[in-house]
Nucleic acid binder design. Structure first.
Length: 249
DNA sequence: ACCTATGTTGATAC
DNA sequence: GGTATCAACATAGG
């Protein structure tokens, strides 16, 4: 499920439950999830340290540690979540920290597209979608000839919006996802930014990007929850997209 | 069995 | 450079 709202919940969970605990063991043996690190590298950097802060931009999390060590970057990928002090899951825990009190923080990820890395590169992320200013949003999102939906989901443009959230946002803002980004007016971009902020705020509160009003209608044969028109479906920005052809222009 | 689908992202090709 | 496509992974469902 991970988009910005899920990442924020994970960040808050870590901040609340994991900070200050002494790391006594590190499971970093999954060379794919921990790439480019070799097994043992994360352990060497993290053993004996304590997490001191949990941070996030978009979908990327990074945890600072005491001492001079590198930050620990965590990404939930497509199906990951953070499990703290839960019973270990042998198959799906791709990375984990054990604390000296016997507790444990695991990156639990069926699909293995999550990541755990040292010193994560944040330089290629745009501003967090929830806090981008109006000027930033206009300048960054309203550019390029590609579809506005693809632009919204480009993490280098603004960070945090994924497929479900993008459909919800465009539906709320009544904008056709196929419109070229650079053809949106400033008024439309401002409305879009408002929809981004509202959708994210609600999703964080309600528990995830899948809680949007459009979401349960996002299926073949689905209908617009506002006007009842049959939803259109197409592949935009490489992702399956649903929208209301009557209301979204 | 085989095909499609799935919340992400990165590499690659044009 | 900007944009589009595909592959990486694992699982579920028709």
């Amino acid at each position: 499920m991970p988009e910005l709202p899920e990442a924020e919940r994970a960040r808050a969970l870590i901040a609340e439950r994991a900070l200050g605990r002494l790391i006594s063991a590190v499971e970093d043996g999954d060379g794919y999830v921990c790439r480019p690190h070799a097994p043992g590298e994360l352990a060497a950097a993290l053993l004996g340290r304590r997490l001191t802060s949990a941070n996030r931009i978009g979908k990327m999390l990074w945890l600072e540690t005491d001492g001079a060590g590198p930050d620990l970057g965590l990404h939930l990928g497509m199906a990951g979540r953070i499990a703290i002090d839960e019973a270990p899951h042998e198959r799906w825990d791709r990375f984990a920290l054990t604390f000296d009190d016997g507790g444990r923080l695991a990156l639990r990820d069926k699909r293995r597209l999550g990541r755990a890395v040292l010193a994560p590169d944040l330089s290629r992320l745009g501003p967090d979608a929830a806090v981008a200013t109006r000027a930033e949003f206009r300048a960054r999102v309203g550019r390029g000839g590609g579809a506005i939906k693809a632009r919204l989901m480009d993490q280098a443009v603004i960070a945090g919006v994924g497929n479900l959230l993008a459909d919800e946002i465009l539906w709320q803002a009544r904008i056709d996802p196929r419109r070229p980004a650079n053809e949106l007016s400033e008024t439309e971009l401002d409305a879009l930014r408002r929809a981004v902020r509202t959708a994210i705020r609600q999703a964080v509160r309600k528990g995830g990007a899948h809680t949007g009003a459009l979401n349960r209608h996002r299926e073949r044969e689905g209908h617009c929850p506002r006007c009842g028109a049959p939803l259109s479906r197409a592949r935009i920005g490489g992702r399956t997209t649903y929208w209301c052809p009557d209301e979204q222009r």
